[in-house]
Amino acid sequence: MLRFIATRLVQLVVICFLISVFAFLLVHLLPGDPTLAILGPNDTPAARAVLLHQLGLNKGLVSQYGTWIMNIFHGNLGASFLTKQTVTNALGVAVPIDLELVVVSQVLALLVAIPMALIAALRPNRLFDRIATTSTFAMLSLPTFVAGPLLVLVFAVTLKWVPATGFDRLSQGLGQNLKSVILPSVALAIGSVTVYYRLLRADLIATLQEDFVTMARSKGLSTRYILMRHVMRPSSFSLLAGAGISIGTLFTGAFVVEVLFQLPGIGYQLVQAIYSRDYLVVQGMALVAAVAFVVVNFGVDFLLTILDPRVRRA
């Protein structure tokens, strides 16, 4: 078990290094000249050369990477050319927003998907299963940029229960804070519900046909006990793997929702930085998003080894 975790940790470090290299190179692969973006097209070539020197962009790539990564270890991701705000500060704004969006939306999605999958799997192809399968499929085909404005129209504009846009920090009170994230979270949860429902339903139906379920029934155990203590665990592997990918993607994939609801999350700031060639911001945000993805999936792998004792030998 410890060996397994150690191996995975080494893998994690290697992957994070590769990510940092790609995040660094990414910006150099983008067409365009950052000095042009900062100084504007009307400045002199001499001034551009001075800036290039100041930014260290005239040095070799390896030396540039070295400087960048050493600064990161000191907590310094650089600063935006445009706003002069440090990337660390920008992340301080973005990360709590994304964390909260991810947590609230995924908890909502699981709260809906798990009971639905359980009821549907107990009586497959019967009325509830058909309704649930069809309606989740409809939800999947509803894009976020349609669901988002619809939610705003109903709950913010018409009913006025929650604000339409903006983010209230937790320090402004939990209620206030939740009100500001509930609509974007629901918009994000809609897509996840379908995926989670389908993964869990399929695994549950397969598990319920296993001999060990008949065996548990032949012991006279109640259906509820069998579901909770015998069926759920071996049926949750696909769901967990799916959740890992879904959560990891959301750190940047929440972009559309962040724009719709004016939430300055990672995706939102990243896209803005790309447009303005604010390359240190792009590098920093991309690095954080990618590392978050890898760490979340490392966590999922770890959970899988706890849930399935057969994996531990691998």
Binding site: D211, T214, M215, K219, G220, S222, P234
Partner: peptide
């Protein structure tokens, strides 16, 4: 009522113990 019979009065031994025992319990 059957649940009271199952396990207590009648018990079943399955053909394949690999599939009849829960692999994660």
């Amino acid at each position: 009522e059957l649940r009271e019979v199952w396990g207590m009065q009648i018990a079943l031994v399955f053909q394949d113990p690999m599939t009849a025992l829960n692999p994660v319990v």
